[in-house]
């Protein structure tokens, strides 16, 4: 059963709510899109759109935010797919230069551990991006974000049963894709 890592009690203050989800939202978008800048843009746009709902009860912010972010990720994923096809037709290759700040070593961390984590992160992202979209969304929201089934269903716009089905298939597929982890 997935753990509940997301805040169980919604933040009353809107800024505090965004602050509590922004890092996890970025990491989720990064895993789904495989592109750091796209992920940052997706989170920023999701925040802007959520502001329109800030007068709603605070309990609604969580499913609304993940629903908006999921939609942002889906839109970008489609655009990137088209862009890659166009680039392939034109015979060009997209250069994804890493952010220099991202490459700065953390002085308090073991470099070997950091390297292993970076490799594992890349493998997890690659495996997730090979999943069908709905399975990927269910895994990211339910398993990694720690939303409960009802919140995941609200964010995905489907029933609880569909969430369980997508999640079960995603976990089975990832178990195969991530064999190398063990």
């Amino acid at each position: 059963m997935p753990f509940d890592a997301a805040p169980s009690l919604p933040a009353v203050d809107f800024d505090a709510f965004l602050a509590s989800v922004e890092r996890r939202a970025f990491r989720m978008a990064e895993l789904a899109l495989g592109h750091r800048e796209d992920a940052l843009d997706a989170v920023q746009d999701a925040m802007v759109k959520l502001v329109a709902y800030r007068d709603r009860p605070a309990a609604e912010w969580t499913p609304l935010f993940w629903s908006i972010l999921r939609s942002q990720v889906t839109d970008r994923h489609r655009r990137n797919t088209v862009r890659r096809k166009v680039m392939a037709v034109l015979g060009r290759r997209e250069d994804e230069a890493a952010d220099p700040l991202e490459m700065l070593p953390d002085p308090g961390e073991d470099p070997a551990r950091r390297h292993a984590d970076a490799q594992a992160w890349a493998a997890l992202g690659k495996a997730l991006r090979q999943l069908p979209r709905r399975q990927r969304e269910a895994y990211l929201l339910r398993e990694l974000q720690g939303l409960d089934v009802a919140e995941t269903a609200a964010a995905m716009g489907c029933s609880d049963g569909s969430v369980k089905t997508h999640l079960s298939r995603a976990m089975a597929a990832l178990r195969t894709h991530l064999e190398d982890w063990r």
Binding site: P2, A5, L124, E143, W181
Partner: peptide
């Protein structure tokens, strides 16, 4: 274990 590792990494 695989999914626990994924959660920890996340």
């Amino acid at each position: 274990r695989v999914h626990d590792d994924a959660r920890d990494l996340f």
